[in-house]
Amino acid sequence: MGKWSTFTDGFVKNNPTFVLVLGMCPTLATTTSAVNGLEMGLATLFVLVLSNIVISLLAPVVPDKVHIPVYIVVIATFVTVLQFIMQAYTPDAYKTLGLFIPLIVVNCIVLGRAEAFANKHGVLESLLDGLGVGFGFTVSLTVIGIVREILGSGSVFGWKFISGDGILAFVMAPGAFLVLGYLMVLFNKYLKKS
């Protein structure tokens, strides 16, 4: 049970977007459509899981004074690996997400989980934590993407059900803030148990 809750905590109780409010930049910037949100979430998941595993292994041997630089180097390495893989096999997604792929390095979620969880726990738990938080992030991004796509272009995952244009502001910057704000209100009202 204990291990299972490590995984599920990332969805609601420690939801990175709505509760911890971490990694706001990609959350706002890449959720112009459901697909983009999903891709960004999976990219972050990849880095989060691998860096969590490696950092949980490294933590006991790294001197305390340099642990942050070491973690950053590890994370940056995985991000660059991800960049190569995406360029090679999913070039279109790499183009759409653009700058926000290298910026996973400074996504507070990744370093945050390394500091708050992976350096105190074993490999398996860190893996589960990475998966949980990563999926929580992916689901949040996809939901925001779906809402913005419905309002902004009248479609879901590219499938158009309203002909004509949507409310353009929702695809552009202001819509990102507004949608996230209102979703957070709903989350607070119905899911968060205080």
Binding site: L58, V61, V62, V66, P69, V70, V73, T77, A88, Y89
Partner: peptide, 25 residues
């Protein structure tokens, strides 16, 4: 020493991955 080792190791990993993915890219 630790920091240097980690940096060296990571650069090496990157160089390898770079070499592997260069052709597919």
């Amino acid at each position: 020493l630790c920091l240097t080792l980690v940096c060296l190791f990571c650069s090496a990993v990157l160089a390898v991955v770079y070499a592997i993915t260069a052709d597919p890219i």
